[in-house]
């Protein structure tokens, strides 16, 4: 069976999904069920003191017994904040060590700050975290993050929340070719074909949030993404035919044609 292996653990789905930007928890759960994802990302935030004390919490809707919860460092702009956030996440999730590291460099574009990301990755790996790391599509940085000991490298397809799709398939291809850990596209996927292309390139998985949550019908888009990731993976494994400008080999037999005029030009 074709499975995604991260830090020694096997997952049947190669689609990882975020849990932000949904209308309510019911829609969150319905979309995640439709996506078939095993791994779901969550953010770590201060409790709203004195507000909604009896409101259900996200982890009641998405219990860690049913999903692998992947806490992220979204909103962190320094290595220090990212490390603190994930230490809190580990405590929150009873010692759970699989985390998503992202350190942003700019609130306008949400471009990653790769220098701070490298610093944070070193600290977290030393503290025993299994780090899945969000980064730019720079193959050198991706390799360095792998060498530090990150368990998965997750380059952007395009900027977070942009829905612009895969802007540099060539860089992704180099990253995939060089990597010995899983490579997942994280950020920038806009629609199902983007996810399929990522998988056809040889990515081990795709992580997305906005593409599903901001669709007109998030649950239907979640289902589309599931199929796209599966289709793209199968196409990659099957090995596509070579591209040719034209082919002198039609799919139907060339002999036995009833036509008597064989060549219009003749």
């Amino acid at each position: 069976m074709d499975q995604l292996i991260i830090a020694g653990k096997a997952y049947s789905s190669r689609l990882l999904v975020g849990t932000g930007k949904y209308k309510d928890f019911a829609q969150t759960r319905a979309a995640i069920d439709a996506s078939g994802a095993n791994i779901v990302t969550v953010a770590i935030r201060r409790t709203n003191i004195g507000q909604n004390a009896n409101e259900p919490s996200l982890l009641e809707v998405l219990p860690p017994s049913q999903f692998t919860i992947l806490p992220n460092t979204a909103g962190c702009y320094s290595a220090q904040d990212a490390v603190r956030t994930l230490r809190l996440a580990r405590e929150l999730l009873d010692g759970h060590s699989l985390v998503k590291l992202e350190v942003l460099g700019d609130p306008k574009t949400l471009f990653p700050n790769v220098l701070e990301t490298l610093h944070a990755a070193k600290t977290l790996v030393n503290e025993g975290f299994h780090v899945m790391v969000y980064t730019s599509d720079d193959p050198i940085i991706a390799k360095q993050l792998e060498e530090i000991g990150c368990v998965a490298v997750m380059p952007l397809a395009s900027l977070i929340g942009s829905g612009m799709g895969i802007l540099n398939p060539w860089n992704l291809q180099i990253i995939i070719e060089n990597a010995k850990v899983p490579v997942l596209v994280d950020a920038g996927v806009g629609t199902a074909s983007d996810a399929a292309i990522a998988m056809e390139l040889g990515c081990d998985g795709v992580l997305m949030n906005t593409a599903i949550a901001a669709a007109q019908d998030p649950v239907l888009m979640a289902s589309a993404m599931r199929k796209a990731v599966e289709a793209g993976r199968d196409a990659y494994l099957a090995g596509r035919m070579p591209k040719k400008l034209y082919s002198a080999a039609p799919s139907s037999p060339t002999s036995g044609v009833i036509a008597t005029v064989k060549d219009k030009a003749a």
Binding site: G18, G20, V42, I44, L58, P71, A74, L92
Partner: peptide
């Protein structure tokens, strides 16, 4: 003191 919880995020 910081007290945190898991919330929706990507």
């Amino acid at each position: 003191v910081e007290i945190v919880v898991a919330v929706g995020g990507g």
